[in-house]
Structure formats: C-alpha cells, structure tokens
Write a protein that binds this DNA or RNA. Structure first.
Length: 300
DNA sequence: CATGCCCCCTGCACGC
DNA sequence: TGCGTGCAGGGGGCAT
C-alpha cells in the first residue's frame, strides 16, 4: 500500500488532528508486528504530547515531547485509522479512515494491533493484515544514527536528488535500474509502483544496467537526464492525487471514483502502451521476485 | 561493499 | 464447491 506518496498523505491528514495532542492511553492488542514492539511501549508513550509529524522515506516520525520519536513503518498492508472514541464505543458502523470510510461489522475489527487514544477524544488504530509493518521508539538525538535511518539514501523530492547524485551512485553499479531505484540506500521512498511508473516516463528500461547511465567522462548520458524529473514528477502528482496506489481507497460515500489510479504501466500487463505514437504492449517481468511492468518498445 | 535470494504474514483470485 | 497455487504496496538478514 504505502510508498512515499501514501505515507506523505497520511502525514498531511494526521497532522492537524494530532499535533499538540497528548496520548493518554496506548492499547496493545499484540506484542509484536514484524518485530517485537519496544519494551515498555505503552508506558513510554502514555502522557507524551505529539510535537510534530515528519516523514523520512516510507517512515512516519511522531516527535514527542519526551525527546523520543515514534517511528512507524506500514509495511505492505499497514494503515492508521482515525475515529473518535465516541464512535468506537458505540456500535461503530463505520470508521473514518482519514477521508475513506471503511465499513465494519461490530466492535471487533480484525488486524487492529495498536490503538492510540488521544486527549481530544480520537483514536488512531494501527491495522495491518500481514504485519510486515513495525514501530520503534528512538531518542530524537540519535535518530540519524539509528540502523534503520542511517542507511537511507536521499529523499527523492529534495534537491539532494539530482543528476550529480545519480551519477555518483550509478557509476560502476551493475544492478538493473529497477533494483537500483527500489534500493532504499540509493533513493529512499520509492516502491514497486512508482519505480515502474518513473522508468516508463523516463523511457528507460527496468533491465538496463545502472552504470550505463553514465558515459566515459562521468557525465549522465543524454537519454538518462530525464530520470530525476520523472521520479520527482510522478511522486509529486501522486501526492497531490491523494496517494493514488491504494487498491482499496474509497471516497467518503463509499465509491472509488475520484482517486482512480493513473498508472501508465503498473498492473497494465497486456494493455496498450500509453505513449501515443507507440504501438507497444505493456509487458510484465520479474526482477528480484517482484513484478515489473514496462513497454519494451519505448523503454530502452 | 554490492548483489540476489529467502523469508516474514494473510487474503484473494484463479484454475482444475 | 473445494482445494492448491501464485501473487500482493516492503525490507531485514544472510550467503555469495
């Protein structure tokens, strides 16, 4: 579910409700997600106030007045669902999933793992079917030195992600472009969908070897110069579209219309290439155990 | 160091 | 209908 645009959207949607609010109760439905939750998790969170919410790669960072940061990763199926305590204590026929309405039957909801109660009568529920997500608590001062954080490459939407950086990283590398861009140590926040989309927009084959982006003089080859902007454009558009990759994204009235995906290649195997003059068909291949969608005709 | 493969977990679509 | 298989937005850990 969540790549950078979805996580960024979540941040934008949560912030107005949570900043300055105190967590007065944390309810753990299980002690482990992908990893065991931090020791004394509830005690360390209860009574703290959320100062701000930021994002790094696909991580959400809740900065607390205790000097700690609650770091949340949603994995594949993680969600943060918001509703009010009142609704929850009534029969909760629906839950406001940050603009989506998710219909539930009764109070018990499968795969709710952690419930945060805030002082303004809201609950934030961490729900994660596959439990590939996780949470850690890190001292704010040590955040950059944390093993999960220190390995991350540049933020793709920052000025640090530019052609010079790309050259530095790509030269000498034999990984294909799909793997190269999926690797969070290189660029942090891209996932399977947006890598496919960005490579399509840039006209670059996902099978192309990364070092071939760089010429003998150490300059980016002409046909590789659109990669940075392709990545940035697709991410920006997706952020503005409200995080377009949610398969189960529902509008408040329960319909799917407004946030329909605008993927040009992802999940379009066998369908026509959407570059107007191209007569190609979108192909699906596997790289590192993950599906890749691309047009072999216009991506070189 | 970089790369590639396996694994964690649940639900769903598909084919027989 | 029921069952087996493969696949799904991610990334840590390990062998090479």
């Amino acid at each position: 579910m969540p790549e950078l645009p979805e996580v960024e959207n979540l941040r934008l949607l949560l912030a107005p409700h949570l900043i300055g609010k105190k967590l007065f109760k944390v309810d753990l439905k299980r002690k482990d997600l992908r990893f065991p939750l931090p020791k004394n998790f509830e005690e360390r969170l209860q009574g703290t106030t959320i100062l701000q919410i930021t994002r790094r790669a696909k991580y959400l960072l809740f900065h607390l007045d205790s000097g700690q940061i609650l770091v949340v990763h949603l994995g594949m199926t993680g969600r943060l669902l918001m509703d009010s305590v009142k609704e929850k204590e009534e029969t909760s026929q629906y839950r406001n999933i940050l603009g989506q309405y998710h219909f539930t039957e009764g109070r018990h909801v499968q795969h709710d793992h952690v419930i945060f109660y805030t002082e303004n009568g809201k609950t934030i529920t961490y729900n994660d079917t596959r439990r590939f997500g996780f949470m850690v608590l890190i001292e704010a001062k040590l955040i950059d030195r944390h093993p999960l954080m220190k390995i991350l490459g540049v933020e793709p939407l920052s000025e640090d992600f530019n052609n010079r950086y790309l050259v530095q990283l790509a030269k000498g590398r034999k990984a294909d472009l799909k793997s190269f861009l999926m690797n969070q140590r290189n660029v942090a926040g891209l996932g399977n969908i947006y890598v496919c989309e960005a490579l399509f927009r840039a006209g670059l084959s996902p099978k192309r070897i990364s070092r071939t982006l760089v010429d003998r003089d150490g300059n980016l080859k002409k046909n590789a110069r659109s990669l940075v902007s392709a990545v940035q454009d697709v991410l920006k558009e997706a952020v503005e579209a409200g995080g377009s990759t949610l398969r189960d994204f529902l509008k408040p009235d329960g319909t799917r219309g407004a946030f329909q995906t605008k993927h040009l290649v992802y999940d379009r195997e066998g369908q026509p290439c959407l570059h107007s003059p191209c007569k190609g068909v979108v192909r699906r291949i596997w790289q590192n155990g993950r599906s890749t969608f691309y047009c072999a005709h216009c991506q070189r």
